[in-house]
Nucleic acid binder design. Sequence first.
DNA 1: AATGAATGAGTTTTCATTCAT
DNA 2: AATGAATGAAAACTCATTCAT
Lengths: 214, 214, 214, 214
Amino acid sequence: MWGFLARAAESKTPTRIQREKTGLILKAALEVFSTYGFRGSTIDQIATEAGLSKPNLLYYFDSKEAIHALLLEHLLDTWLDPLRALDPKGDPVSEITGYVIRKLELSRDYPRESRLFANEILQGAPRVMGLIKGPLKTLVDNRAAVISDWSKSGRIADVDPYHLIFSIWATTQHYADFDSQVSAVLGDAAERRFEAAADYLTTLFTKMLLPSAG
Amino acid sequence: MWGFLARAAESKTPTRIQREKTGLILKAALEVFSTYGFRGSTIDQIATEAGLSKPNLLYYFDSKEAIHALLLEHLLDTWLDPLRALDPKGDPVSEITGYVIRKLELSRDYPRESRLFANEILQGAPRVMGLIKGPLKTLVDNRAAVISDWSKSGRIADVDPYHLIFSIWATTQHYADFDSQVSAVLGDAAERRFEAAADYLTTLFTKMLLPSAG
Amino acid sequence: MWGFLARAAESKTPTRIQREKTGLILKAALEVFSTYGFRGSTIDQIATEAGLSKPNLLYYFDSKEAIHALLLEHLLDTWLDPLRALDPKGDPVSEITGYVIRKLELSRDYPRESRLFANEILQGAPRVMGLIKGPLKTLVDNRAAVISDWSKSGRIADVDPYHLIFSIWATTQHYADFDSQVSAVLGDAAERRFEAAADYLTTLFTKMLLPSAG
Amino acid sequence: MWGFLARAAESKTPTRIQREKTGLILKAALEVFSTYGFRGSTIDQIATEAGLSKPNLLYYFDSKEAIHALLLEHLLDTWLDPLRALDPKGDPVSEITGYVIRKLELSRDYPRESRLFANEILQGAPRVMGLIKGPLKTLVDNRAAVISDWSKSGRIADVDPYHLIFSIWATTQHYADFDSQVSAVLGDAAERRFEAAADYLTTLFTKMLLPSAG
DNA sequence: AATGAATGAGTTTTCATTCAT
DNA sequence: AATGAATGAAAACTCATTCAT
């Protein structure tokens, strides 16, 4: 678990200080990378944000790349958890709207993670294409099959499961990734943007999925 | 209109060669900036892409920043055109699904512009916040009012017009901004992603907007 | 011919300034590398020695490695010229003693080149092993065959041609590579070290090669 | 004798553990310094090679420089032993060819020591010039006088004793210092390089020294 | 209008050494 | 005696921008 540490490789168990400093650095790096992108961020910024000297930061991580890579790796897991939680045995519509709500909560609670990921994908995913074509695609394929079954059995409307998933990702992550625009456009109403989005998106996807009467 | 030119102060009207080179540079800069972000791009890359020498490029533009600023400025106009085209006198549902389709076409035909803009918003819109709080917000407020009227008159379902617009932006731009992910997940089906998205999104927003029977 | 230049790759003919500066840099680099070794030398030292700023030096060469590589490449040619000049049709003893003298002259006139090469070989030839196993070995094999023929025909004494060549290299290059020691040991006599060495080595190799009477 | 120890000032006699660790460090340092040169070697490399932590290594030695200095000091003694052993009362030719063989054995058995020394001399002997101008020169002067006497008495041919010594050093140390080149050129024959060199060099110096008949 | 040349201010590391325990 | 932690000083580049022609 600590194999990513420059120094920790040598010692089996990380010390308390290692855990603390590593955490500090990752927190600072997330802040900086998610705001300025990989190339736009400097180790100096991250070190300052973390309250460390530059060489001290590099004592814990081998390189700027290594910090970024670790962040992305951790991130993808968290990011996919809600989709994993989609229960094939649950009620289709509530499973999916529940998924929407959980993704929206991630956007509200972890906007920096969302932006870090968005930044990466935007640039063609040079550092995470492997994860996308591997674990991410596998999971999506699997859940798309579940949704497809629901469609075929008539429990939800006929829908392209992949594009359904894309639209859920797009609409929920929008509130994290494009928050500066959303908040600017909403003005005073920005305060309640997540509640309003929850209502709106629940309706949107419920209407989309309700099997047509008849 | 040529105020952005470094040398333009000296001559009222740009020569043909000025127009050509400026166009070349902007085209190259769009390519580069949209792929690597502002900080991740170098003037050298842009100059090479444009087939110019670095100093020659800087003969036409004062700075890297200036090229970027001009690109964004031009961009926003194009970006908002479809929304402007939303006709208060048209049929509400087809006006809105028409808007969706036009936005999706922009994502298909101008993905680099979309990514450039997304990059900027992601980073907190440091260079375009003025435009967002100004012209963009004004236009959105105006169209939201139109949609709101449609809702109140019962011609479309009751819907939060701002979040409706956000969801249209999010879902359509997703196919440009997150294309690397979309295409990787879809695999072979990626080829028809825009046609499939058009179908899916038309259904999605049509269902959302159809006034409930009764 | 100018392909090694960072900038020159773009232009067919090097300008006068390029030729001058490139020459200056190579001269300075030879001085510095031959004294401190590759790792012990800094670009700053070379730039200062050449009277340039560090970035200016890097305008002409892509990297420290590139300068070093070019020096070694040029060097090996010069270094092997005397061996190439060994004439199979000449008088065996005078051909070889002539070779000794020419090598000794190289040590006298180009001691820095000799030391640069020695430094490289000493560290296991990490950057020139290819040249050694290729062109250098080919040439040596070829001349060893010539010497071998001379031995077999009885025109010189029976001798292992490879070790003969090694001993010529060793004894002549010693006056360049180990000059600090040679001069320190000789004291006042150091002034005439090359003349004395020429006499001594001529005798040494003449005695070695004279076919035994019989 | 333990004055070089950082901590030795505190204790008169080194403990067993001090002796062991010091030995380990010197062994490791020889390996590393002889391969990469002084500036090209890092304390980390040496510490790793010695199986110690960096600060622990610096507990035993004050600095990188101190380790290097001690190595060179020890080295010179070993290096000059064979020359010291040259017996004025022995048979001149066998004394000298014996010296050649012993030096060649040192090259075979202690190539790293040879390269460490060569590295130092190549760079102008900045750290051992004192030793060279002192003990080394004294010894060489002394043995040169012996050889000179042998020449004058007609027991060996007339020869410049200094250049004779230089040529012995050069030819024998060549097999350690330039081994990468020697082995590459010899190819398969490299395996027997030391035996072949012993034969060749014995002949070379015997022919050189045999008093001319008459 | 164009370009070869030059540079100051970064930016990512590296490394000998010190500190605290 | 040993080591995890920390750092100042360097070192190899990079890059937007300027200068001279």
